[in-house]
């Protein structure tokens, strides 16, 4: 800061603190809702300060039989489903993007650029523009209601491929030459040299992709009909619908809290990698 006037400094911090409060407010309200019982949560005005039912709500949400009037899987199972989906999507994307970037950068072969453009095209075809036909493909392949169906169709990734391509291009040519003289073949070079050198990029990308995978909504909604395959993020919709008959807001909001804790925790705990991943992939 160029100025050193205490008043401006005070105002600066004041604005920022107000901003932080404004951003945090919805989550605070959610948290507060998860600490009261159903009775209290049905009286206006709603509380703004935590009560003492947090653990009870957690227990009921995680292991209880769900909202009355719905047929939902237990929340712990949804969390597991979400975790499996997020991990499969993120590791899958990273694995196949690493391989194709390696091929495109380090090999000269017919149709190389054709493949490159084919991967590029996926950038322009989000699920939202091909909902029905993609659903049909997954259904025909018998992948509905499976982890494979939840993850595989999402793991093609132009951004990840481009990012790894960028990373590989900055690796000096002499390392490859050196490795060739040392007798390393392509796969050996990939695993011994390239992968260790891309370690932080992989970690950064993993953070972004884990969040991406965890937060999937439309896709699981389309291809899971079996309640045992429900993910926690998509369950919110059914809960909100159920709330119109049985407004168990304490349970709904505890579920919402549980649905956001894992990705939020990842962002905060791995902030440096998260920022690196976000700026490197430009989304």
């Amino acid at each position: 800061m160029v100025e050193h006037r205490p008043l401006t400094a005070f105002l600066t911090h004041l604005v920022l603190i107000l901003g932080v409060f404004a951003i945090a407010l919805p989550v605070w309200i959610t948290f507060v809702a998860s600490t009261h019982d159903e009775l209290r949560m049905n009286q206006a005005p709603l509380p703004l300060w935590p009560g003492e039912y947090f653990l009870a709500n957690m227990k009921q949400t995680l292991f209880g039989s769900g909202l009355s009037g719905t047929e939902q899987a237990p929340v712990w199972l949804m969390l597991l489903n979400s975790l499996a989906m997020a991990l499969m999507i993120s590791t899958g994307k990273i694995a196949i993007s690493l391989l194709s970037a390696f091929a495109i950068v380090y090999f000269k072969f017919p149709f190389r650029m054709g493949f490159f453009w084919m991967i590029f095209i996926t950038l322009m075809l989000p699920v939202e523009v091909r909902i029905l036909p993609t659903f049909e493909v997954v259904a025909n392949l018998g992948m509905l209601n499976s982890y494979w169906g939840l993850s595989i169709p999402l793991i093609a990734s132009a951004t990840a491929t481009f990012m790894f391509r960028q990373v590989f291009l900055t690796v000096p040519d002499e390392l490859l030459e050196s490795a060739r003289i040392d007798g390393a073949g392509p796969l050996r070079f990939f695993f011994d040299i390239l992968l260790p050198l891309s370690r932080t990029n992989i970690a950064a990308l993993f953070v972004i992709l884990f969040i991406f995978g965890w937060n999937q909504y439309l896709w699981p909604l389309l291809i899971t009909t079996d309640t045992s395959m429900t993910t926690i993020v998509m369950s919110i919709k059914q809960m909100l619908e159920a709330a119109e008959q049985s407004p168990q807001w304490n349970i709904i909001m505890t579920t919402a809290l549980l649905a956001m804790i894992p990705p939020v925790f990842v962002v905060i705990a791995m902030q440096k990698l998260f920022v690196q991943g976000l700026t490197e992939t430009d989304k």
Partner: peptide, 25 residues
């Protein structure tokens, strides 16, 4: 043949779940 094997998973997924459905649409 190695580079083809390396791009195969990505290309296969792209074809089956992206390009084919998009052309269907």
């Amino acid at each position: 043949a190695l580079p083809y094997l390396l791009v195969a998973p990505q290309i296969l997924i792209t074809l089956v779940f992206f390009i084919w459905p998009a052309s269907q649409a």
